[in-house]
């Protein structure tokens, strides 16, 4: 990158007061031609404007969500951060808080991450170090295809096909490890359609992004490090331990953060898979409830009165801030290694 051609426009380098009309007409030859100069200025402004638009879009998301959320937050009768339920039925008596929503969001996303991270690590190592050369690309493509399946289909599959299939696992965990709070009885009458089920579905959904980022960074491991390890007589696994993992660790963590961000914001699959519950969240994976995203989607058809709508928008704002932080951290951790 250091030796890249500078991107200044060629005709930009001598810009100055010379273009003002008071200057005598330059003689022919190498003097500037105003039309090419104008084209350059217009094109440059248009492309810069497109870039600025992206920055503006992010700023606008924050600002507009805030504008819409503030009146409802002011009208809120309950404490926004600690109140466990979201009562917006009576616009004159709003009482909503994000405690349970936050917990369900975090439990499902972190659980998904715990499941996805080791698998993604294994797959990334498999694709970069173990798979036969000729098959590495098609195999990687197959894993990427997981990302092409729409969330709503994961939701349907998750609740109708996967949930019954993993129910025995849930029952076994609940029966044998129920003394651990994570596997204790939840607030749902069944062990299906729980945070546990949702977490497994989310794990499948975030697997491709975690894998893709990790694989990309692993593949960039400098050759000399690999060869240095091989020259010491290292086995394939020892090469990975000596070269690939130390080099790729930050990429793996960054990819996992990106996966976490996806899980936090996943909407429709979670809405379909995790059942709502009338009783509060009790720190078990067998609880049900809403995440930020599924709560908003569940109420979307009732967005008519401004104050209740604003309550949901305030939840959206929290989700926006959460994903912003997670994605910004991912970028910081990755340094220059990760793009996307």
């Amino acid at each position: 990158m250091s030796e890249r051609i500078d991107q200044r426009a060629p005709s930009e380098t001598d810009s100055g007061p010379a273009s003002s009309p008071g200057v005598p007409a330059p003689p022919p030859g190498t003097r500037r031609r105003p039309s090419s100069r104008r084209g350059e200025t217009i094109f440059r402004s248009l492309t810069t404007g497109s870039g600025v638009l992206v920055v503006a879009a992010i700023a606008a998301i924050g600002v507009f969500l805030l504008i819409q959320a503030v009146p409802s937050l002011l009208a809120n009768q309950a404490d926004f951060l600690t109140f466990p339920s979201f009562n917006t039925g009576d616009p004159d008596n709003l009482a909503f808080g994000i405690r349970d929503i936050f917990l369900v969001t975090m439990f499902s996303s972190v659980f998904a991450l715990v499941l996805a991270m080791p698998i993604a690590l294994g797959v990334a190592l498999f694709l970069t170090n173990y798979a036969p050369r000729a098959l590495a690309r098609p195999f990687a493509y197959i894993v990427d295809l997981l990302a092409a399946v729409p969330s709503i289909i994961y939701g349907l599959w998750g609740i109708l096909v996967l949930a019954p299939a993993i129910l025995p696992i849930a029952e076994w965990l609940n029966a044998n490890l129920g003394w651990i709070f994570l596997f204790a009885d939840g607030n749902l009458p069944v062990l299906s359609g729980t945070i546990f089920t949702g977490g497994v579905v989310l794990a499948v959904m975030i697997l491709p992004i975690v894998t893709a980022v990790t694989r990309e960074v692993f593949a960039q491991t400098p050759r000399f490090q690999i060869e240095a390890a091989k020259a010491l007589g290292a086995t394939r696994w020892e090469v990975i331990k000596m070269a690939t993992l130390p080099y790729g660790r930050s990429g793996y963590i960054a990819g996992s953060m990106l996966g976490l961000g996806r899980a936090l914001g996943e909407t429709i699959a979670v809405l379909i898979v995790i059942r709502a519950s009338t009783s509060p969240m009790g720190f078990s994976l067998f609880d049900g409830g809403y995440t930020f995203a599924s709560l908003i989607a569940s109420a979307a058809s009732e967005f008519s009165q401004p104050l209740p709508t604003g309550a949901y928008i305030s939840a959206g704002l929290v989700l926006f801030v959460l994903t912003f932080i997670v994605n910004a951290l991912a970028r910081l951790i990755a340094g220059g290694k990760v793009n996307g």
Binding site: P10, S11, T13, D14, G16, A18, V23, P26, G29, T30, R31, R32, R33, S36, R37
Partner: peptide, 16 residues
């Protein structure tokens, strides 16, 4: 003619 003169356009210089 100085090709680095501020009235001179780099694009035009390269045409020449």
């Amino acid at each position: 003619e100085n090709i680095y003169d501020r009235n001179t356009d780099a694009v035009a210089v390269r045409r020449t």
